[in-house]
Amino acid sequence: MVLGEKHGTNYLPCTFALSQKRKCQIGLHQNFLMEYPKEKILEISSSSLVSLGAKLSAMHLSKRTLKGITTVESVFQSSRIYSDGIKRIGPFPEYRFLPGRECKKLVKEAAKEMHSYQYELDGLTFYAPVHHISQFYDSLYLNALLEPENEEVKNKLLQENYTAFTDLATRSLNCQARSAAIFVGLVRAGLIDEVRDYFSYLKLFRTQENGKTIGSESYEHVQLLYKDRVKLFSPVIPRRFHKAEVEDYYAERCDVLTNCKETDNYLDLRCK
């Protein structure tokens, strides 16, 4: 998707970008709810139609470190270690307290054509095991929701009783929607305190300190194992809510929204 159009020497954001993302969100959610009408679904990204979804974004969610508070996204990106088989670079603590998008951009530029395989944060080392490739990201996200800075958003997430989550903005192997789903599942199972400690977290997901599995039943069913293919563990949802219906839905319910990422530009805030 083209996100901007050239105007002189500057690039102006296209006026349709945010609305188009939200229409995709509507289409996916309505099709899902037609198949699973008893579920309650939330998009977790800055493009969410609901303010809670934006607050739960890794770009906005606060995360404590030994040297101060930043965001989940900035901690994740600045903790990466890359290799090309010969050279190793990272982590990048000098970028840790930059905004998430800026931190991500600088890390990616420094690590062009290299492979991210390990993470280091506050004296702890995490790997990216194939059986749970988002293990470090999930740990950051789960622990962030247990920290006092995010008490309000955590309580609302649990009180609203959401049962399904999406993140249409990601092409990454790490997904904030999946991390939120894991959090809710662990809370309901009475196991959420296990993620606070490094060793109990690894044990909970049946992983050794070296990233290898414990036994033959390690955490699995992570659908995005490889960028070039997706392995499905459940049937594809049939498409019964079509484009015209999405347009009608958006026109009827979202006409109060603008195409800019503003602090009040969410349905639950504009419709009050």
Rank of each mutant, 00 (worst) to 15 (best):
M1K: 11
E5A: 01
T9A: 14
T9G: 13
N10M: 14
L12I: 14
P13G: 12
C14H: 02
T15H: 11
Q20R: 08
Q20T: 14
Q20K: 07
L28Q: 01
L28P: 13
L28A: 07
Q30P: 15
Q30C: 12
M34G: 13
E35T: 04
Y36T: 15
K38W: 08
K38V: 08
K38Q: 14
K40V: 05
L49K: 08
G53S: 08
A54H: 09
S57H: 04
S57D: 14
L61T: 02
K67D: 15
I69C: 06
V72I: 09
S78M: 00
S79H: 03
I81T: 08
I81K: 06
Y82W: 13
D84C: 05
G85F: 07
G85Q: 10
K87P: 03
R88V: 11
I89C: 10
I89H: 01
E94P: 05
E94H: 02
Y95L: 06
R96G: 04
L98W: 04
K104G: 12
K104W: 07
K105C: 02
H132I: 14
A144K: 05
L145F: 13
E147G: 10
V153L: 00
K154A: 11
K156Q: 15
Q159E: 15
Q159G: 15
Q159A: 09
E160G: 02
E160K: 06
E160D: 15
T166K: 01
D167K: 02
D167S: 03
L168S: 09
T170L: 09
S172M: 11
C175T: 11
R178E: 13
R178L: 15
S179E: 00
I182K: 15
G185Q: 05
I192K: 02
E194G: 02
E194H: 08
K203F: 05
K203Q: 10
K212V: 01
E217T: 12
E217R: 06
E220P: 00
H221M: 08
V222W: 13
L225E: 13
Y226P: 10
K227M: 10
K227L: 10
L232C: 10
P235F: 01
I237N: 13
I237A: 11
R240L: 06
R240Y: 00
K243N: 03
Y250F: 15
A251K: 12
E252C: 14
C254M: 10
D255W: 15
V256H: 05
T258V: 01
N259V: 02
K261A: 10
E262W: 02
N265G: 05
L267Q: 06
L267C: 06
L269A: 08
C271H: 06
